[in-house]
């Protein structure tokens, strides 16, 4: 129903992404998150420190207010206390930071995330249907294999999920792979991961779905390619 949309900057998106320093196969979330943390902390510390410094420096030592406060019940002049220029300078700076940051995530993160690595980038791709139900996860592989509560995927392969639900809304989340996706009855939501390391991870449900929501987890096994039973059936895209 969704995604797999033609990317508007098709043709040039590889270039854009390369420019932004992230390619579709790397740890997009980790890099963006770090950048946001750094920028956010910086801005936050500066602004809060400035606020507190002003409050402290201008504090009233005798507990009295200014001698020239406005008259009781005054109609204030529209401009109020002035300082318009300063206001717009800081506003401009903050706007630049926010727009740059979020714009960068758009090109460096959003676009590559929507499509995932192409087959030129990563040859091996696997489709798995994930169905949430009260309270567990079912996984269907292209060869007709089905498993409950345990997802097995090959390493070094792009795994594409079609996420849906049998009953209420759930959310299929893979914290280790930094990706979550809603599971909605009657529709399919797409997401992908690109495991780089074998191991055992967990899938959790990130949307309140009923009394068993807390326990609604599944095991995710990333196995070496040659151990993956279903290999060979799921490569066609």
């Amino acid at each position: 129903m969704t995604t797999q949309v033609p990317v508007p900057v098709a043709g040039s998106w590889d270039g854009l992404i390369a420019q932004a320093g992230v390619d579709g196969t790397s740890d997009i979330f980790g890099q963006l998150f770090l950048a946001f943390i750094v920028a956010g902390t910086l801005v936050g510390v500066v602004v809060i420190a400035y606020t507190l410094q002003k409050a402290y420096k201008n504090r009233s030592e005798d507990g009295e207010t200014k001698s020239d406060t406005p008259d009781m019940g005054e109609i204030p002049p529209l401009e109020g206390g002035g300082k318009g220029k300063k206001l717009f300078l800081s506003f401009g700076a903050s706007a630049v930071i926010v727009i740059t940051l979020v714009g960068w995530t758009y090109f460096a993160g959003f676009i590559p995330m929507e499509q995932g690595p192409s087959e030129q980038q990563v040859e091996d791709q696997l489709d798995v249907t994930v169905t949430g139900f009260q309270f567990g996860w079912r996984f269907n592989y292209p060869d007709g294999e089905e498993s409950l509560g345990r997802l097995t995927v090959p390493n070094d392969t792009v795994v594409r999920f079609d996420v849906t639900s049998d009953d209420v809304m759930h959310n299929f989340g893979l914290p280790y792979f930094d990706r979550r996706s809603d599971a909605i009855p009657g529709q399919i939501t797409e997401m992908w991961i690109y495991p780089q390391e074998t191991g055992t991870y967990t899938a959790k449900c990130y949307e309140l779905c009923g009394s068993g929501h807390s326990q609604m987890a599944a095991q995710v096994e990333v196995v070496p390619k040659n151990e993956f039973d279903n290999w060979g059936n799921g490569t066609e895209q």
């Binding site: 979330f29 946001f36 940051l101 979020v102 995530t105 993160g109 959003f110 979550r180 990130y206």
Partner: peptide
């Protein structure tokens, strides 16, 4: 909140 407005981050922050 700006984190949540950036979709690639939202993909791993929403619901948590």
């Amino acid at each position: 909140g700006v984190f949540l407005g950036a979709i690639p981050l939202d993909y791993n922050l929403r619901g948590g």
